[in-house]
Design a protein around this nucleic acid. Structure first.
Lengths: 226, 226
DNA sequence: TGGAATTTTCACAAGCTCCTGATGACTTTC
DNA sequence: GAAAGTCATCAGGAGCTTGTGAAAATTCCA
């Protein structure tokens, strides 16, 4: 069954374009242009994801976000005007899942929607234990064991290892790892990943020159030994 | 099946040059010079990508972009006059996929076209594994196997082999291979490819005098044994 | 609010990859 | 068969990528 997405935006040009793209991508969509009607529409449609513009007639996106959050943990993506850094911060507090600054390309929106679904459904279906070779993770308990010895990992190190272990052998670019680790699309310094890889290797007892677990793929990124 | 590209531009010098390059790169092309005819032409040709000039007789590129977007999510590349930053923003809202500022080199256009196709369909359609004869590649894992033996390839060698294996028997010029390998238009020494072919042959156990895998096509370039 | 833990950035060295230009061998053309 | 064009190969340096330590920035927690 395809996921249903509720669009709340008063610019019909934008909603029409987004609906076109999202439906092409296999999602069902519904749209509403009036902020005051967003909550009733949400209750009626029971969408799996909401895309909210901030500037709306009658009620702004923040208020809608707050109200939806009172009764649901449905993923919410906000559309913000560019350069409003405060938006991001306010939104995070209100429980939005991602932000897209205008102007955006419809394809980017589809990509973010996919990413949010991956994240939010992944959790439900994700097995609580992950084991590959000598490494075992318990996702619920947030514990790691290497060679029978418990290992203490920071949150990012843990996320990183989860990503790598979920697809052993598959190469991830630094950017992919960053995006999987950080919540939203992230545009910082890619090589921050190198530091976490270094720390992970140290904690797992891996040697960068001759690694058993986390392999470097020159010119691409990293992968977990298959 | 080769992708079809619709060119909308009233300067026949430009369309002719671009058609030459795009067809050389393996795409089918169609062109139309009158903006008012662009939409009918689009419906008739059903192209996989549209390249739109902004300055056109009878109807400008923005309007055409808008109209096409009402009925299709086909990728669109806009040709813009230089330095019009606002163009970029307007265009993003209208759903264009890329911008190329004039003056541009035909090779740059080909590179962008490839990039757009990679982005829009690459993820979904690209098969994970590629196998021809004794050679097998796994793109996700970035691994290669020749005759059952794993082979260690550098990034460019890997890309090169992917390109050749995706179209066994098809001859590629050195320039085509370079452009497939490097992201953007590349203006270096074509013979650099020879080095990579040599290294690839060595790693695959191929003999240049009597190659089984990578064949030299005298005066043209290289192809993978069909 | 402080202080510790974590994360990110920066800079540099080491290593690997890639490009270049030259040379000789081969192929085509006349 | 000679000339011209094309290809295979080599070696060295340019350029890029990675590993790593140290420091700055940020987050977390009491």
């Amino acid at each position: 069954m395809p996921e249903k997405i509720l669009l709340v935006d008063d610019e019909s040009k934008i909603t029409r374009t987004l609906q076109l793209y999202l439906e092409q991508a296999g999602y069902k969509t519904a749209s509403i242009s009036d902020g005051a009607l967003a909550l009733p529409a949400f209750r009626h449609e029971q969408p799996d994801l909401v895309i909210l513009d901030i500037l709306l007639p009658h009620m702004d996106g923040w208020e809608i976000c707050r109200q939806i959050r009172r009764e649901s943990i449905v993923p919410i993506i906000m559309l913000t005007a560019q350069g409003e850094e405060t938006d991001r911060i306010v939104g995070l507090e209100l429980g939005a899942d991602d932000y897209i600054a205008k102007p955006f390309s419809p394809r980017e929106v589809v990509a973010r929607v996919r990413a949010v679904f991956r994240r939010t459904q992944g959790q439900a279906l994700q097995p609580r234990a992950l084991q590959v070779g000598d490494i075992a993770l318990d996702i619920e308990k947030h514990t790691a064991v290497a060679n029978g010895m418990p290992v203490d990992l920071t949150p990012i190190e843990f996320e990183l290892l989860v990503t790598l272990l979920q697809h052993p052998g598959q190469v991830f670019t630094r950017l992919q790892l960053l995006e999987n680790t950080q919540d939203a699309a992230y545009d910082g310094y890619e090589r921050a990943i190198d530091q976490h890889i270094k720390n992970l290797r140290a904690k797992l007892g891996d040697d960068a020159r001759n690694p058993r677990y986390i392999l470097t793929v020159y010119g691409i990124g990293y992968k977990f030994a298959p």
